[in-house]
């Protein structure tokens, strides 16, 4: 009776699991398949690489949007990781006035709908008469990245033994030495995953970027949006295939990198 129920549960979860995986991958596989279609529509007209040619050789706007995305992602992740790491250390190891409020406020952006962050930044930038550009996008991305870095760093710091810090102090290490030679080196895995998480979020963001971007400051998601609106579907198929391949490669290699570095 009991083994029977176990099999049942397992069967149900297996069926759901398989359906979920199909649900995840069928749309992606359709995109990949039709990126090799020689026709413009979703009717199969034969194999062709013309959309890749179009993507790589005749889409300079797209590549400049991609470059903007990379610039914003790298810079905002760098600043967010720096601010988030040092701030997370401060919150974790020390007691100070208003600490509780600071903790609550820094996590609020995580649970706020992102459109609110986009709208509020747009209104503030307009009030300050700042022109929308890659710089305002950078500011917005740093803002939504910081809470994620904090979250990752503090879960890493939770695993620490406070006695290590005390030992460093007892052995005469100055505050700055403890920070640079003990706390930060031990947080490196957290810092790296915080940085990677920020990169991913930044490269992926459409909604907030949509509000704080101006003419001439297009990121890759904004460019894809305009391509969808203009109906240049086959090129998006080719781009999707390249991006999906990139995602798979990155996740495989980041797994391996982590394996070598931290195990």
């Amino acid at each position: 009776m009991r083994t029977n129920s176990g099999i049942n549960k397992r069967q149900i979860s297996l069926v759901v699991f398989v359906s979920v995986i199909l649900f995840f991958y069928i749309p992606l596989l359709v995109l990949i398949l039709y990126s090799f279609n020689s026709g413009k529509t979703m009717v199969w007209r034969g194999f062709s690489l013309q959309w890749y040619e179009e993507l790589f050789f005749h889409s300079s706007d797209l590549w400049s949007a991609f470059r903007s995305s990379l610039i914003v992602a790298l810079s905002s992740s760098f600043i967010a990781t720096a601010i988030g790491t040092i701030g997370g250390i401060g919150i974790h190891w020390y007691k100070f006035k208003w600490k509780k409020y600071l903790q609550i406020v820094t996590y609020l952006p995580l649970i706020m709908p992102e459109i609110i962050i986009g709208v509020s930044l747009l209104i503030m930038f307009a009030w300050l008469k700042w022109k929308m550009s890659l710089f305002t996008i950078f500011l917005a991305h740093t803002t939504f990245n910081i809470p994620f870095v904090l979250l990752i760093i503090s879960s890493r710091l939770d695993e620490f033994d406070y006695q290590i810090i005390e030992a460093a102090h007892d052995l005469g290490a100055k505050e700055i030495d403890t920070l640079l030679k003990v706390i930060i080196p031990m947080s490196i895995p957290g810092i790296i995953s915080g940085f990677l998480m920020s990169m991913t979020l930044s490269l992926d963001d459409f909604v907030i970027t949509f509000f704080v971007s101006g003419p001439g400051s297009s990121t890759l998601p904004l460019h894809i949006y305009s391509m969808i609106n203009r109906g240049v579907f086959p090129v998006i198929n080719a781009l999707s295939t390249v991006l999906i391949a990139g995602t798979v490669l990155l996740s495989v290699s980041s797994k391996n990198i982590q394996k070598y570095m931290f195990k």
């Binding site: 720096a82 601010i83 988030g84 040092i86 701030g87 250390i89 401060g90 919150i91 190891w93 020390y94 007691k95 100070f96 600490k99 600071l102 406020v105 820094t106 609020l108 952006p109 706020m112 609110i116 962050i117 709208v119 509020s120 930044l121 209104i123 503030m124 009030w127 500011l139 917005a140 740093t142 803002t143 910081i146 904090l150 505050e175």
Partner: peptide
């Protein structure tokens, strides 16, 4: 002891105030 907690969290506090607390208050 100097309170390093405040020093470490100063950039965080400033950033969140300027780019989150103030904008949402403006709304």
């Amino acid at each position: 002891k100097i309170n390093y907690g405040k020093i470490y969290t100063a950039p965080l506090t400033m950033w969140i105030t300027f780019f989150f607390v103030i904008p949402t208050s403006i709304i």
